Simulated assay, not measured.
Amino acid sequence: MSRIPGRWALRMRTPVGSIEAEMTFTERDGGLTGEANGKGETVALHDVTTHPHPDGERVTWRQSITRPLRLDLLFDVVVAGDELQGHSRAGRLPKSTVTGHRLAD
């Protein structure tokens, strides 16, 4: 059973400043799905995968955004309890640091 399902507040430190988003991960049909809400848009998460990691659970996913720029993002984070950290990448741009915490339902 994955540790990621639920709502998460994420902060990404990018070259254009900090961006905050709320992520919702849901278990469905034996897999994971989700959506991201931030900058006035809600987008679907694709290819959500999990793998064991020495510090918790490694979670990866893809998403496309249009605000503040049109970008295809790839996330790679490690979930440890109610905290997560890792990075996101948009094509050839430098990696952006990602941190987050679980939100109470």
Rank of each mutant, 00 (worst) to 15 (best):
G100Q: 00
T66S: 07
A9Y: 11
H51Q: 15
T99Q: 00
L93G: 12
R102T: 08
G56R: 04
A9R: 12
D82K: 00
T49K: 08
G34H: 01
D82M: 00
R13N: 14
W61H: 01
V16P: 03
L32H: 10
V16E: 12
R28G: 03
I19D: 11
T42R: 10
L93C: 09
D105I: 01
A90P: 02
A90T: 01
F25C: 10
R28P: 02
L103D: 02
T97K: 15
R70Q: 01
G31N: 06
G6L: 06
D29C: 08
R3G: 15
D29Y: 04
D76N: 06
L45R: 07
L10T: 02
V79D: 05
G31K: 04
P68V: 00
H101F: 02
G91I: 03
S2V: 09
S2L: 10
L103G: 05
L84G: 02
H51N: 14
T60Q: 07
T49V: 10
P5D: 11
L10I: 01
T14R: 12
E20A: 11
P15M: 04
L103M: 04
T24C: 05
E41T: 07
G40M: 01
E41N: 06
P54G: 13
I4H: 08
R102S: 09
G38W: 03
A36D: 04
R28V: 05
T60R: 07
Q85H: 08
F75I: 04
T26E: 10
D55W: 03
H53W: 02
R70C: 01
D55H: 07
K39Q: 15
I65L: 08
H51I: 10
G30L: 02
L71I: 02
L74D: 15
W8A: 05
P5C: 11
R92C: 05
K39C: 11
T97C: 12
V48A: 07
V98M: 04
I65G: 08
V98Y: 01
S64T: 11
D29Q: 11
H53T: 10
T97S: 12
I65V: 13
A90S: 03
R92A: 11
H87T: 15
L74C: 14
S18C: 14
D55E: 10
H101E: 09
H101N: 05
H53S: 13
G17E: 11
S18H: 14
T33L: 04
